[in-house]
């Protein structure tokens, strides 16, 4: 009998995901109350998440790198296995009254969260900070398990958030995606998937926007010239903060596209959970 090692490794990634999920559930908890769940997403079920990352990648650099890596490996028929990690962090049952959430007591936090809970760009909130720590510890253990098995992986807020928007693992407020593989050195770091997909000018423009002081000329005058070319003194330019309705409109357009994609797949995702009951474990929250 002969096996293709590449094929066997691709199949093995599901077992790796199971191992990582075990580590996720085994991870030590500070509170003992944090409800968590996980799901393994493979093959064609990855596509809705990748499709949602597409529009987002046009306005967000780190999402672009993740999107391109997902898509290129998917298109090549060698996608990662995605371990989706989730937790509900929006109530406190402990009564520790530490103040980390911004309220004097857990009782006040719970009352505020019940009335004002909402969704940020990635996750829901407000959150109990000790549960946030529990979730971080558990996600770290999942990633550490993959690292110990020598499978390239990367903790991702974006793929997790997209899965959450699609309706995966309902009843949870925070989601992390952990792509596992495909096997190889440096899939999710120093990404070969990005070769030929951006220019030096784009990279410099990114640095120019993110770290403008790095390009500042003499600041003593109070309004330094910006070194925006090799002969920067010939075209004097200055930094300025401007409101950009165009940029915000683009964000709005992207969010609309993502919402539409989510709506396309959400009923199918919801059917996966139609028989699942969300655990009602908030009965003993501090009121």
């Amino acid at each position: 009998m002969r096996y293709s090692a590449q094929k066997a490794c691709a199949e093995h990634l599901v077992d790796v995901a199971k191992h990582c999920a075990s580590a996720f559930f085994k991870a030590p908890r500070i509170t003992g109350y944090t409800r968590m769940d996980a799901e393994i997403i493979t093959g064609e079920d990855l596509w809705p998440i990748i499709e949602m990352l597409g529009p987002l990648s046009t306005i967000n650099s780190f999402v672009r790198w993740d999107y391109e890596t997902f898509k290129s490996t998917y298109d090549a028929g060698n996608p990662p296995v995605l371990l989706l990690l989730a937790a509900d962090l929006t109530r406190s049952q402990m009564g520790w009254d530490c103040g980390a959430c911004g309220f004097a007591t857990c009782k006040e936090f719970n009352a505020y969260a019940a009335r004002n809970g909402g969704t940020g760009q990635l996750w829901g909130g407000p959150s109990c900070n000790w549960k946030v720590l529990d979730f971080g510890i558990a996600c770290d253990w999942a990633a550490a398990a993959a690292a110990q098995l020598k499978v390239d992986n990367r903790i991702q807020a974006d793929s997790g958030a997209m899965a959450g928007m699609l309706g995966y693992l309902p009843g949870h407020s925070a989601f992390i995606g952990l792509p596992l593989g495909p096997v190889g050195d440096l899939v999710w770091y120093s990404r070969e998937a990005m070769h030929g997909k951006f220019s030096r000018e784009e990279a410099m423009a990114n640095m120019f926007r993110c770290c403008p002081t790095h390009f500042g000329a003499f600041p003593g005058g109070g309004n330094p010239l910006v070194k925006n070319s090799e002969r920067w003194w010939e075209t004097p330019s200055f930094n300025a903060a401007v409101q950009s309705p165009q940029a915000m409109a683009a964000v709005g357009q992207v969010m609309a596209e993502i919402t539409a994609i989510a709506g396309k797949y959400a009923p199918e995702v919801a059917r996966k959970y139609q028989d699942n009951k969300v655990p009602a474990d908030l009965a003993d929250e501090v009121r």
Binding site: N129, V132, L133, G136, D140
Partner: peptide, 25 residues
């Protein structure tokens, strides 16, 4: 009035969780 001056940045606190997790691992 509280031991911790909240609210804290949840993303940073989450990252502390990863640090604790790796130490424990």
């Amino acid at each position: 009035d509280t031991p911790i001056r909240g609210p804290l940045c949840g993303a940073r606190v989450n990252d502390l969780g990863y640090a604790v997790g790796s130490a424990l691992w």
